[in-house]
Simulated scan of single mutants.
Amino acid sequence: MYRRGVIALCAFLALLAGGCGRHSSADDGGRKEEGAGVPFEESIQIANGYGDIYKKAAKEDADGTLEMTRLIVERIGEEGYAASDYDNQVNMQNPDKVRTFARKVEEKKEAGVSLFIVNDSGGFTRYDLKTADGNVDVVKSSLYWEGDTPKSDYKEEYRTKTWVCDEEGYLFFERNSLSGAGSGRVAVRLQPLDDSCRELNRKYLLLAGYHQNNMFTTDWNEDDYGNLNLYDLYEKLYMMKTGEKAPYEFAFTGRTYEVPEEEFEAVFHDFFQIDSQTIRQRTIYHEGTHTYQYRPRGLYDKGTTPDVPFPEVVSYEEEGDGTLKLTVNAVWPKKSLERAFRHEVVVRPLDGDGYQYVSNQVVPSEDNVEPEWYMERLTEEQWQEYYGGNG
């Protein structure tokens, strides 16, 4: 169930990520200057250097796992390169190379560095960066595996439109034109993060995230659920519970479903300490049929932007009552913000792998952004206006 959620998340984060490279010196024996050209042969040599890890994982059906990615990142790091992964789930190796380059950008001096980001298929994207006069030029190339053979044959060149580097946090950069697929945004964490924080983030935050729901952007608790929208959460929780999509499909003409009460309430009882009466007060429940009305988001309230922040647990506390309080930053590559806002999520671990969400509170700050990516669901009046009762 986790892997499915993370694969979906990877599709979003793969549009954002990048990686780093090796410092040239007099002992390099004539190797290319960092950030110069497209060293396809060098990339293949690097991949052959960790080929044993990739081939062993593929043989054991462990390719695509976080452990394989971590081992590859560390192996590239051992060769003197700065390396990370697409999902920022592994601490960057040799981040000082990136920090040094970033200082040269700020000082408007000439410098070069190569940046590698490993993907869950065992390949990587390579950004060869050069700077002069405060500009950053990029040669982007990629490496993939064809069977047991590494291949590197793609390149793209551009000058960055955005370059933001917090040496104690994230590096963000973005190409100056949107030729080709994706936004061209790169977001890579330089500062190490405790593995426990990442594990808690994967378990409790990433699968729900901030897309098309307000669970982590509004204040609520078990005594007062505030503006929490349960309809927003139904499909998210259904996937988290079953590993499958809810069987209630979007329709351009609008569609209304009647969901049996046992099915609808079960997903909330699994993830919240909430009674049936509270669920019914916050939704539309039909007593006669023992069903809940459910309308998937449609053409007029689906929202179109994939550029939403992603959560990152940066610290946690074990509370006396057995709950965990997680401090979470919303990282927003679109705005080059490693803290678009901060919130505290309290969860209650249960026996086995189960858990319940207890509360969420947004930490007040003048720097907090409004969740402009979130679109409210249509009201009953709006639904009738747009769809004319077609459901």
Rank of each mutant, 00 (worst) to 15 (best):
2 Y>H: 14
3 R>W: 01
11 A>Y: 13
21 G>N: 03
22 R>E: 13
34 E>Y: 07
36 A>R: 09
42 E>W: 06
42 E>F: 07
46 I>A: 09
46 I>G: 05
48 N>G: 07
54 Y>N: 07
56 K>G: 07
59 K>D: 13
75 R>F: 01
86 Y>W: 10
87 D>R: 09
91 N>K: 07
107 E>F: 00
108 K>W: 03
115 L>D: 06
120 D>M: 11
125 T>S: 13
149 T>E: 14
158 Y>R: 03
162 T>P: 06
166 D>P: 04
166 D>Q: 11
167 E>V: 07
173 F>L: 15
182 G>L: 04
192 P>V: 06
199 E>K: 11
200 L>F: 13
202 R>E: 12
204 Y>C: 07
210 Y>A: 01
223 D>A: 00
229 N>S: 14
232 D>P: 11
242 T>R: 01
243 G>Y: 05
251 A>Q: 06
258 E>N: 13
258 E>K: 13
262 E>H: 05
263 E>L: 11
276 S>K: 01
292 Y>D: 05
293 Q>N: 03
304 T>P: 00
307 D>F: 08
309 P>E: 02
314 V>S: 11
325 K>S: 12
341 F>S: 10
341 F>N: 06
344 E>M: 09
349 P>D: 04
357 Y>W: 04
357 Y>F: 11
371 P>V: 05
376 E>R: 07
